[in-house]
Nucleic acid binder design. Structure first.
Lengths: 233, 233
DNA sequence: CAGTGGTCTAGACCACAAG
DNA sequence: TTGTGGTCTAGACCACTGG
């Protein structure tokens, strides 16, 4: 039953996965410590550590100093999604990208935006409403608020040449952000802009990004019908 | 400008991030090799390697043997989503979980399911339609196909006690899977089951899982209005 | 061919937390 | 207090691939 001569961390990881899968180590069980495993497998402890560390990060194991390592009782699967710049996503499908700014204005935001961006009640933001097109057909409707304090010179940028998304990616990289995925129902406005029927279900991504503890932007992107994000587990 | 005495991989990683952020190393630039960096930072090469490896995995750097390491031209942000078992998600919100099986039958699947699960034209699958409830209110409508070849004994399982999701997680762990997120419009059936209005936009997760090169299950989960997945970037 | 990242090793010290 | 994982090190060899 024992396995010796597993000299690569991938091999160790595979053997550990196999044992968990085969219920040699059951959910909730403790597994041997790194030193013992390194002896059993005939490799260095660092190799075992690398193998187990990745399994812990992926949620299959739980590790605590002194307490040791146990098989997670109810593993939470994690999926990694790529969040592409919309132009690249469209061009990657061999379609022609373009975008249009519908409105651009400076004003005090409503309360929910103010709260999400943690700004003062008198601060003004730049609001940009735009639509991204793939082969001249509407693809995403975007409603964005930008904080001029973190993005100076934003007022001078010509967003007809470069979308706000790309300008920010290039000029104001963010340190931290949160993102959410949901669905909404097309109202008259979305239906008109995205050329779909009112009442259709639409995929929505909302994002807030931060830099040096200050918010950069809040954006809500509503996708045309049929949009789908895909990844592997 | 140089930084010496960065003795932890986190510190090295932070310094590298800082330089990329500050445009010391611009998108597309090569950066020094690991040996040189380890000298500059006053640490071992393995420490530099660990720092850079993680940055490469997160998409900020591109590394190739012999070619060296360069700053990614258009970094693709990655978001990691937790895909919880529905019962845990509901109970985590302090709500009472329950579920109901609406139909359970064995039959030959339609062509799209057959294609996605890569099974023969004569193979039969178990089809389970069910709904998960949070505090007795409908939360998810689930349409699932299960392959009896990978999940033997599935016919004998009492899914009124344990949902198919949980039974599979416990008994037939998958090796590989794909998942997609999209939106749909509630039809009469979804509206009835989820107690929402017809025509409402609903969030959808579709999953296919595999084990030993054979498909285990295909499931489509349609969430009640207002559902949202959230994570950080 | 040779330069670069990828990995393994044996040993060491440290940080944390369970008993 | 002490067992465990977390990390660093110096050195070594290997695998890939650009020139």
């Amino acid at each position: 039953m024992s396995a010796a001569g597993l000299k690569s961390w991938q091999a160790v990881q595979g053997e550990v996965r196999r044992r968990i899968d085969a219920r040699v180590w059951k959910p909730g069980d403790m597994i041997p410590n790194e030193a013992d495993l390194s002896v059993e497998f005939g490799c260095a402890r660092a190799t075992v550590n690398r193998a187990l560390r990745e399994l812990a990060q992926s949620g299959l194991l739980e590790r605590r100093r002194k307490a040791g390592t146990r098989v997670t009782m109810h593993p939470v699967r994690k999926a990694t999604l790529d969040i592409p710049v919309i132009r690249h996503e469209i061009e990657g499908r061999q379609q022609a990208y373009s975008h249009m700014v519908l409105t651009s204005e400076r004003l005090k935001p409503p309360g929910d935006i103010r709260a999400r961006m943690q700004i003062g009640p008198e601060d003004e933001l730049l609001r940009l409403v735009s639509v991204h097109l793939a082969d001249a057909r509407p693809h995403v409707f975007e409603d964005r608020w930008i904080n001029p304090r973190t993005a100076p010179n934003i007022e001078q940028v010509d967003f007809s040449a470069l979308s706000a998304n790309e300008w920010l990616v290039l000029n104001i990289p963010f340190e931290r952000g949160d993102i959410s995925f949901s669905a909404t129902t097309a109202g008259a406005r979305e239906a008109g802009i995205l050329a779909c029927r009112e009442g259709e279900g639409l995929f929505v991504i909302e994002r807030t990004t931060w830099r040096n503890g200050e918010s950069i932007t809040v954006v809500r992107q509503t996708f045309a019908p049929g949009y789908r994000m895909h990844t592997t587990l």
